[in-house]
């Protein structure tokens, strides 16, 4: 699982039917100091009502589908938690 920050949402009407009603969020991978990594943002589905600006963690590959009700869905990244603290560093909302 990896740390990330929600930086946006994706609206997609024409998509695989399994993705109906599933929130697609733009997640920027971050390091332990919550600084953006030099990698492209990814698109993850949400299972914990994450919103823009939230520091979260997500699981990828096959396990991402297990985070959703219906796990026959073509996803490879799923947000599975809001982060409060990493070590002594508190997430400021």
């Amino acid at each position: 699982m990896d740390l990330g920050k929600v930086v946006g949402t994706v609206v997609s009407t024409v998509k695989y039917e399994g993705l109906e009603g599933v929130r697609l969020l733009v997640v920027q991978p971050i390091n332990k100091d919550f600084v953006a990594k030099k990698t492209a943002p990814i698109i993850a589905v949400d299972s914990v009502q994450a919103g823009s600006g939230d520091v979260i963690y997500y699981v990828n590959s096959r396990e991402a589908t297990l985070g959703l009700e219906n796990s026959f869905v073509p996803v490879d990244a799923c947000i599975v938690g809001h982060v409060d603290m990493v070590g002594s560093k508190k997430v400021t909302t």
């Binding site: 914990v48 963690y57 599975v80 938690g81 982060v83 409060d84 603290m85 990493v86 070590g87």
Partner: peptide
């Protein structure tokens, strides 16, 4: 490196240390 505290999370992570 460090412990991670996350109170609001997917039920599968309930009670697990991260």
């Amino acid at each position: 490196i460090a412990p991670v505290v996350a109170s609001v999370k997917h039920p599968a992570y309930e009670g697990l240390k991260l």
